[in-house]
């Protein structure tokens, strides 16, 4: 399941809704991304705004999630990505994967967050004391996503 929303999310409630009452689930892995004050180079950020391309976000996230579900035979998965203005300490993204065994849940969760960073059409604009700046993409993120291409 994919949700892109402005509002915050409740991690416990999301995990419970995804896996509660399903006796096939033996492992749940989660990843929570949080806004950091030192997210960029230079002046510390006071806030940031996440812009996205809604139609493409939906299409890309659904494709990435379907791939993970098939590859790791997940029982269930959830991606919640926020957009709009966020301050340091605010949650940005939640990825939850549920499977019979821990390895599938953990690997699928790592795969999803790596691909989110390189394929989901989101852009971060940071606000700092020195003025606003757009965050540049990092080659390290591309490499993190690439490592899943050949890994089984």
């Amino acid at each position: 399941m994919i949700r892109v929303q402005r509002e915050d999310f409740d991690i416990g409630a999301e995990i419970e809704a995804l896996s509660g009452g399903n006796n096939e689930v033996g492992a749940v892995a989660s990843f929570v991304g949080i806004t950091r004050a030192d997210a960029g180079e230079g002046a510390p950020i006071t806030a940031m705004t996440l812009e996205h391309y809604p139609a493409m976000t939906e299409k890309q996230l659904a494709a990435i999630e379907a791939e993970a579900c098939e590859r790791w035979n997940l029982t269930a998965s959830l991606i919640v990505h926020r957009h709009g203005r966020l301050e340091p300490g605010d949650r940005i993204v939640l990825v939850v994967t549920a499977a019979s065994h821990r390895r599938a849940a953990l690997d699928a969760c790592a795969f999803l967050i790596d691909w989110l960073k390189t394929k989901a059409p989101f852009w971060k604009r940071e606000e700092t004391a020195e003025g606003p700046r757009w965050v540049a993409a990092r080659a390290a993120d591309d490499q993190a996503a690439e490592r899943w291409r050949d890994a089984s």
Partner: peptide
């Protein structure tokens, strides 16, 4: 759509 390389997800 034309845009810069994407920068979503969590901070690295």
């Amino acid at each position: 759509a034309l845009f810069p390389p994407v920068t979503g997800g969590a901070p690295s």
